[in-house]
Simulated scan of single mutants.
Amino acid sequence: MGGISIWQLLIIAVIVILLFGTKKLRNLGGDLGGAVKGFKKAMNDEDAKKDADFEQEPKNLEQQKSEAATENKKDKEQA
């Protein structure tokens, strides 16, 4: 009592199929699947972009350090 039985779910499924038809339900399922795939792809692309940015950040820091070191050497040579 209080729960939905398998028979009640089957009756609801039959009513939905009669109202919308199998073709519309198939199209709806395909659209929903395409939306989920697009969402997953967008999330993976965003993660890949973050990873690429994270990998480039240390290189940029190293470049900045080396540029600062060469500037310090030039300043010492000029003095």
Rank of each mutant, 00 (worst) to 15 (best):
M1C: 03
G2C: 01
G3S: 13
I4S: 12
S5W: 00
S5L: 06
I6V: 10
I6K: 05
W7E: 15
Q8M: 08
L10N: 06
L10K: 09
L10Q: 13
I12M: 07
V14T: 01
I15Q: 12
V16I: 15
V16M: 10
L18C: 12
L18A: 13
L18I: 10
L18W: 09
L18Y: 08
L19V: 15
L19G: 07
L19A: 14
F20S: 04
F20Q: 07
G21Q: 01
G21V: 10
G21A: 11
T22W: 08
T22P: 11
K24G: 05
L25R: 02
L25F: 03
L25G: 08
N27Y: 04
G29R: 02
G29T: 05
G30D: 08
G30P: 00
D31R: 14
D31G: 09
D31N: 11
D31P: 00
D31I: 11
L32W: 06
L32I: 09
L32S: 06
L32G: 07
G33Q: 04
G33I: 11
G34E: 13
G34P: 03
G34T: 01
G34N: 14
A35H: 07
A35E: 03
A35Y: 03
V36H: 01
V36Y: 03
V36P: 04
K37C: 13
K37V: 12
K37E: 15
G38Q: 03
G38T: 08
G38M: 07
K40G: 08
K41M: 09
K41S: 15
A42K: 11
M43S: 10
N44P: 00
N44F: 12
D45W: 02
D45Y: 07
E46M: 11
D47Y: 02
D47T: 08
A48V: 03
A48W: 02
K49H: 01
K49P: 04
K50N: 10
D51M: 05
D51R: 11
D51T: 06
A52H: 05
D53M: 12
D53Y: 03
D53A: 14
D53V: 07
D53C: 04
D53T: 05
E55D: 15
E55Q: 13
E55M: 06
E55L: 13
Q56L: 09
Q56H: 13
Q56Y: 02
Q56E: 10
E57Q: 14
P58D: 09
P58M: 04
K59P: 00
N60S: 11
N60K: 13
L61W: 03
E62D: 14
E62V: 01
Q63T: 04
Q64N: 03
K65S: 02
K65Y: 08
S66W: 02
S66F: 01
S66Y: 12
S66P: 00
E67Y: 00
E67A: 08
E67I: 02
A68Q: 08
A68I: 01
A68C: 01
A69G: 01
T70M: 14
T70S: 14
T70N: 08
E71L: 13
E71F: 06
E71H: 10
N72H: 05
N72W: 12
N72G: 07
N72Q: 09
K73H: 05
K74I: 14
K74S: 14
E77D: 10
E77S: 07
E77C: 05
E77H: 04
A79G: 08
